[in-house]
Design a protein around this nucleic acid. Structure first.
Lengths: 224, 224
DNA sequence: CAAAAAAGTCAAGATTCGGTCAAGTCCTCC
DNA sequence: GGAGGACTTGACCGAATCTTGACTTTTTTG
């Protein structure tokens, strides 16, 4: 299967060069020369994004956040340099990487290939979710905030697990109930309300946020 | 999109009954009354298979294996009972499920619907529409303009979703009402006027345009 | 140009939904 | 067999949303 790569940089010369090179390597490429164009191009649902975070007239961090909110693929940053501050700001999260300018084309292709391989492997069985200080480990069924563990009951964790592995998507209570209790479970999906309350309470207490958002009239959604 | 379901059982009465019922639910059905027929029918590339593993003259396990080697869709087993040994033998793998005989038709349809939904989710989890700076995400039910979210209520978003997935087409209020509220909904399609007003208001405020166009005497249309 | 028809606006009442709580049941581990 | 935690249930309340109907504006048509 051919991978789709979205290239975002303000310099047309550079995006074209990269696009030509990557097409040559067998990738399908999309380019965008600004923040707005980048967001539009997300509709192609790329497998990987090459992103210049130092584009003029663009707030790199919030563009990056927008991208992450809408697609779940690795982002490789093209940048003059990454400072410690950048890392703290959350530019780099789990699946991401950066390449400092100037760079050679072989370096770019090598990194891309490595990321796609890793992504491929981990997508099917990702067991660890990290999001802004919160660490959810599906294998050991534990949740940590900073160094401190937050304990959840079975049902509570099941709900978190389902939501977090489908982060960003909205599920109504029926679907959630079905997913956690099983297809043939009978009972009132209203229980979810109570469990969600408990989960939120614990998360709020420990982290100051609630993570699970209500979409009124529709259902719940895990917010990264 | 109509899903294709292959029904495999040696009892013609049963396959016919299931086929009739599922067609009624809007599925496209194919039937096979033996192992050989089943393998031939795989050519239709079904989205889900209902399979009796206790057919006479047939080794259920190897038939099942053959099927899996050729198509990658969930299989729901129809069986008298599943023993622990069956599970060990590998009848049940990741995406699969079983229904024990005797079963009711509602149970079958419920299971099928659930499996198809799950399958759908893993196949293409993000449904994104980008149009002129506007980013509409159907999975998370969010709408962004530049970096800023525009929030819509359930009905409002439902209307946007319908119009945007059928962008360019004109729908009269009756049709829109039917599409969003459901076929059997009773009520006045006049509500649409009010919801459209709210949608336009929010869009106008955020983006400076209205996107939903009135075709006088006919209906509404989403303009990119 | 005036009347009729269609579409848009507005405010208020009706309705639905989600959060919360308290109480009851079930289960497990001493 | 009892204590404690986990899971459910049902009722209630307030808030968000939906709907309605009267009214205004715009467009079409005779």
């Amino acid at each position: 299967m051919a991978y789709k790569i979205l290239i975002v940089d303000d310099e047309v010369m550079l995006t074209d060069l990269l696009a030509a090179h990557l097409q040559n390597e067998g990738y399908i490429t999309y380019t965008a020369n600004g923040a707005e164009a980048a967001l539009q191009q997300l509709a192609c649902v790329p497998d990987l994004i090459l992103l210049d975070i130092n584009m003029p007239d663009t707030d790199g961090l919030s563009l990056c956040k927008m991208i992450r909110d809408n697609v779940a693929c690795p982002i490789v940053f093209l940048t003059a340099r990454i400072t410690e501050q950048d890392k703290v700001n959350g530019f780099l999260t789990g699946g991401d990487d950066y390449i400092t300018k100037p760079f050679g084309l072989p370096e770019v292709t090598a990194r891309i290939a490595a990321h796609l391989r890793r992504d491929e492997r981990s997508r099917s069985s990702q067991k660890l979710f990290a999001a802004g200080g919160l660490l959810v480990n599906l294998s050991s069924r534990t949740v940590f905030w900073q160094q401190r563990e937050i304990s959840f009951s079975k049902r509570e964790f099941d709900i978190i697990e389902f939501l977090i592995t489908n982060a960003g998507q909205v599920f109504d209570r029926e679907r959630l109930y079905e997913a956690v209790w099983g297809l043939d479970a009978e009972g009132d999906a209203g229980v979810i309300k109570e469990h969600v309350r408990k989960i939120r309470q614990k998360l709020q207490e420990a982290t100051g946020r609630t993570y699970i958002e209500t979409v009124w009239g529709v259902g719940y959604r895990w917010n990264r």
